[in-house]
């Protein structure tokens, strides 16, 4: 009798209390399993290439109206010697969907084979799907060596 009077009114509250603590406990343990897994799935950030200047080639490597791919850090870049003898260095990663572009001597333009995107030799997007120009780099010569530098890092 006394037991019933103690329990009956208190029972829903007690149940709620148990449900909240049990639920929170289960949720907390699930979170403690999931969090490390989520962090594990995404790889640690790698430091960007520290050097802002790379050796792209040597004078004489390129004939006028040709281009070649060189490594700029971990990404490809394109060095072009235009028909009028100017060097131009641009990122070779197409701004459309990431393919690697090439210089087309016959078109005197930079062309992406994946979706027919077209740029001028200094990286301006002129036709096809590319939404933005290619990143442009500064080119300077040190003797016979051609160096390429990220813009804004004089």
């Amino acid at each position: 009798m006394s037991e019933q009077s103690l329990n009956a009114p208190g029972q829903p509250k007690r149940r709620l209390f148990v449900e909240i603590f049990l639920g929170a406990g289960v949720a907390a343990s699930l979170a403690s399993f999931l969090y490390p897994v989520l962090r594990y799935i995404f790889p640690p950030e790698t430091a960007e290439a520290t050097s802002d200047t790379v050796l792209a080639g040597r004078v004489g490597d390129l004939k006028p109206n040709t281009g070649k791919i060189f490594r700029f850090g971990s990404r490809p870049a394109l060095l072009i010697l235009t028909p009028d003898g100017q060097y131009s260095a641009i990122s070779a990663v197409c701004t459309h969907l990431n393919c690697t572009v090439q210089y087309r001597s016959d078109l005197r333009s930079v062309w992406c084979a994946c979706h027919n995107g077209m740029y001028t030799p200094d990286g301006r997007n002129i036709s096809g799907p590319p939404p933005r120009p290619l990143d442009k780099y500064d080119v300077f010569l040190k003797g016979e060596e051609i160096y390429v530098r990220r813009q804004g890092n004089a």
Partner: peptide, 28 residues
């Protein structure tokens, strides 16, 4: 990773309809 995409590159036939659409869509 340091070579240009070769001419004539295209996906498998079952992605072609999406590939063609993306190719034809204007940038803006």
């Amino acid at each position: 990773a340091f070579a240009s995409a070769p001419p004539g590159i295209r996906p498998e036939w079952y992605f072609m309809f999406m590939f063609q659409t993306l190719k034809m869509i204007p940038p803006k």
